[in-house]
Nucleic acid binder design. Structure first.
Lengths: 257, 257
DNA sequence: TAGTGGTCTAGACCACCCA
DNA sequence: GGGTGGTCTAGACCACTAA
């Protein structure tokens, strides 16, 4: 078996260095050709068979390398035709928004929250539309204020579909945010959200202890599990005290969005 | 070869239905066990060998199924120990932000932009820090206003690292936004951004034709290609006229962030 | 030592596409 | 019909872990 011999030869050559799997080596090689511009976007690259031959590896191994690059969005394969270099993905810029408690803790500060309201109510037109229920349907509603070192930084106005969390009203939210609870209970498969800047309502200003002229960052998010809307939340942040931030790498996998 | 016979049997049984690859069938099976709660988070699942036997498939095929589920973040494998169900990932919520022109066109409106300034300048302390250059280093600076149906909706204040785009000053931005140009030229591998709500400066208000008391959504983004900071941009949106939105599915691949 | 995953091979059959 | 990718097999050697 040629493979064993080669493996041994490599081993002794590089001495105790971690051996790079052959499919990984091929992946690296292909990426290099693309990055060097040797293989341009939309170019056809050598076939599996040909790559396997020139690298002295089996077709299955070459297949794995190429398949993984395909899964990673760098190549596209068409059976019966060939494999082609995919143009770099033009993708929307992505902002990752951490949960409020994570965000605050990451800053080295103390997070706490106060439950202002928790109730069963009839869905208003707006809420009904968000939760995809009939107007007047029974829903759960909760309002929290989140504090960073005793300073209010987020007003959380949450509407919950009772079908998704029948026991919502009887939960203890002293040690767990509703978001944590809902996420742990149901796998959210889709979110839809918007961010806007606006002035606070009188009530919002009062709860956040800010001026009526203080611009606020308002995030509205609808979360779905499969077809069902689980919850809709409105998060109001005083502009002075809160900035949403994020950092994203695009090294490997694309996908999402 | 048993495989051939089976394949044929299946074919005749289901008639011309698309045949499901055996690794895919195993993936489905494993996911079902997890979703049904039969296999709980942190449970050990049967070994490759065992799965291959009970499904009557080869170990390589079982390996592909399990490996893909591992890549998708549903399982974790430890060589010499076993394969385990991974708890559902707690991930930060993600907001996808489309480019301004895409966003506007998607709304069925007309996008246009006006170049206000394009110049070579010395980096201020803030800009130098953003671009990771020395204070006073030579950089490029451009200011655009973007319009949606002739109404200003975004003020783009962009700082460019000359090392990344030496020809930036001589480009024609009538048909292409600087963002399109830079993204097409260099593969951005990392971004860091923040969103905040604040009042506009006098200048910003003038360019956007808004009141000084109108809250604005301000997005600051630093883009890197490898180690080098390519560009830093500040995007100011009048709160009245602009909302950033996004929709994300989390069906398959996790990753990113 | 027995079991696990990690990797690899040298074949194979298939559907598909293009000339 | 010859080339392409898509899938599958029945073995194999390895490093690692746990009993």
């Amino acid at each position: 078996m040629q493979y064993i011999q080669l493996r041994e030869r490599v081993k002794s050559a590089v001495m105790f260095k971690a051996p790079v799997p052959r499919y990984a080596a091929l992946k690296t090689y292909v990426c290099e050709q693309i990055e060097k511009g040797k293989w341009q976007p939309n170019d056809k690259i050598p076939s599996e068979t040909s790559l396997a031959e020139t690298f002295g590896i089996s077709r299955m191994t070459a297949n794995r390398a190429i398949r993984e690059l395909t899964d990673e969005g760098r190549l596209i394969r068409i059976a019966g035709v060939g494999t082609f270099v995919l143009p770099p993905k033009v993708r929307g810029t992505i902002l990752e928004i951490r949960s409020i408690s994570e965000e605050i803790i990451a800053r080295g500060h103390i997070h706490s929250s106060r439950l202002l309201t928790i109730e069963k109510m009839e869905a208003s037109a707006f809420v009904a539309r968000s939760l995809e229920l009939e107007e007047g349907a029974e829903i759960f509603h909760a309002v929290f204020v989140h504090f960073e070192n005793d300073e209010p930084v987020q007003l959380e106005n949450r509407f919950v579909n009772p079908a998704a969390a029948p026991d919502f009203l009887s939960l203890d939210f002293t040690n767990r945010t509703p978001s944590d609870y809902l996420l742990g209970r149901l796998p959210v498969t889709e979110i839809e959200q918007t961010i806007e800047a606006r002035l606070p309502s009188k009530q919002e200003a009062a709860h956040l202890a800010i001026d009526l002229a203080e611009p606020c960052l308002v995030l509205e998010r609808t979360s779905r599990t499969g077809q069902m809307v689980v919850t809709h939340v409105r998060l109001v942040h005083p502009g002075k005290r809160m900035t949403l931030g994020g950092r994203n790498s695009f090294d490997n996998t694309p996908s999402i969005g």
